[in-house]
Design a protein around this nucleic acid. Structure first.
Lengths: 171, 171
DNA sequence: TTGAACGTTCAGTATTGACTGAACAAACTG
DNA sequence: CAGTTTGTTCAGTCAATACTGAACGTTCAA
């Protein structure tokens, strides 16, 4: 039992660590990823001090990173009656919130491309064609993300078993 | 005419600059984005020295960044008979190459999640449910990207006009 | 009123990434 | 053979990022 508990603890620590690296690769601070990882495993809610203690980082860092995740609407800050501490937990729909952030970035990129198409003379036909290709790329990405957000919102309670075997990558 | 040329030059410089920032936000070095931006506007191919000169950066930086973009299969290195210089231009399908790279990263993230699902006891049902939700999120993203890659490959020569008015973001 | 708890802010520090100039090796030209 | 050109490598530098400890302001409890 103790061995199993140790394996579980190790798996949790490893997952939290990996989430830090995964989200750092996507542009978030590593500790923000650790916070998310912890909140996927344990429901919480967690106070700022609890997060600092469990992740072995400073309260300053937790303050900064919870603010960042709150701004991204990935976590929410709540309170308990008669308790002065703030508490944090995952938002109800954290992942489409993340995706919406990605869509905003893609839209801004597409705006740059379309602005350039408008700014360059039409007789730069080769350039206009390559810009059009890049524009279509961003358009396809954005549409695709919006479809995921829509379907995600309407289908996020599929059963464990069903989802496990569905959507397997073909590679 | 000179004014128009200056406007065109400024629009090109601005676009190259913005592509640097856009791709830096996605985790690439800024100069890699500048190289791509330049290659969207001008067909090339470009030698290493030409890139260094036009982007006002060192040959060392161009060497490093062209190697990176080559590894991502976004650009290709070619040669000309009787010419010692290497030449670089955009790959035939640069954007689904980029997307394939993103899909690989998402698959690695999903593997981490599924490995954690397997490593944790099944009776941690709340944790398993939240892990399942994260897994489904990555699965949906991966499927979505693969669909874009597939449709991109089969539909990338749509006309300018058609694509311009199609796929407009609803926001 | 004093001390404690809590979350935030800020100056300082360390690390990392990205760039450069210089040096180098290889291939060519005169 | 000497000089030039080309692309790469590497040590060094700088800027940005992310973290910390300390200080602070606010709110409470004793």
């Amino acid at each position: 039992m103790k061995d199993m508990t140790n394996n579980t603890d190790r798996a949790i620590a490893e997952f939290v660590d990996q989430m830090g690296l995964i989200l750092q690769a996507e542009g978030l601070p590593r500790i923000a990823g650790h916070i998310m990882g912890l909140m996927v495993i344990h429901e919480g809610p967690f106070s700022l001090s609890q997060l600092a203690e469990r992740l072995s980082v400073s309260r300053a860092s937790i303050s900064t990173n919870t603010r960042l995740l709150e701004d991204l609407e990935v976590i929410v800050r709540t309170a308990k009656p008669g308790d002065r501490q703030d508490y944090f937990k995952l938002s109800p729909q954290p992942y489409d919130r993340l995706l919406r952030g990605v869509v905003r970035r893609m839209r801004r990129a597409r705006d740059v491309v379309e602005g350039t198409q408008d700014a360059l003379p039409e007789d730069m036909t080769d350039s206009q064609e390559r810009l059009q290709e890049l524009d279509a790329f961003y358009a396809a990405l954005i549409e695709s993300f919006m479809e995921v957000i829509d379907s995600w919102a309407s289908d996020r309670h599929r059963s464990s078993k069903e989802a496990k075997y569905a959507n397997r990558p073909s590679a």
